[in-house]
Amino acid sequence: MLTAVLSLAMLGLILGLGLGYAAKVFAVEGNSLVTEVVEMMPGTNCGQCGLAGCTAAAEAVVGGDAPATICPGGGSTLAQAIAAKLGITLSLEGMEDKGPMVAEVAEEICIGCGKCLKHCATDAIMGAAKQIHVVLNEACTGCGGCMDDCPTGAIGLRPLPQTLRDWNWQKPALAA
């Protein structure tokens, strides 16, 4: 009887000490999670999420106040990455995955007012006043901020054109 009690007590003590030690050694820095999520975000502070910049958005996501799908610019890729980082299950509903999007200026409607230029967080729109503007696909995050500024509605979002380089096989369906 006594042996059993003692050995169980010893076992508990050893395991408890081990857990305590592990908790100390492998402790995770307090808010590094927010920093990591900020790192993952586009960092353009475009404001399309409705929050004041990427840091605010990251805090909201980590704090659970916003879904992982908060960032329109990051798209589903970012949403999945954030969900994986935070260990939450992701619902992509309401987030149609059209792949990466870029802005496009309809040349026949653009009046060259230049309002979009001022708004673009990444300077992705080229063109001077009174000239038709073009979008640099490489620099555009597809946040759509410029669309709201265009007085003639000449800017729309379109999927980034598919090329041989970034074409990929579908994930094959396996038997259950």
């Binding site: 993952m40 975000m41 586009p42 960092g43 353009t44 502070n45 990051g74 990466p100 967080a121 990444t122 300077d123 992705a124 490489e138 620099a139 995050t141």
Partner: peptide
């Protein structure tokens, strides 16, 4: 791409 746009911003 993110890093690039971040730099631009």
């Amino acid at each position: 791409r993110n890093e690039f746009t971040k730099g631009l911003a």
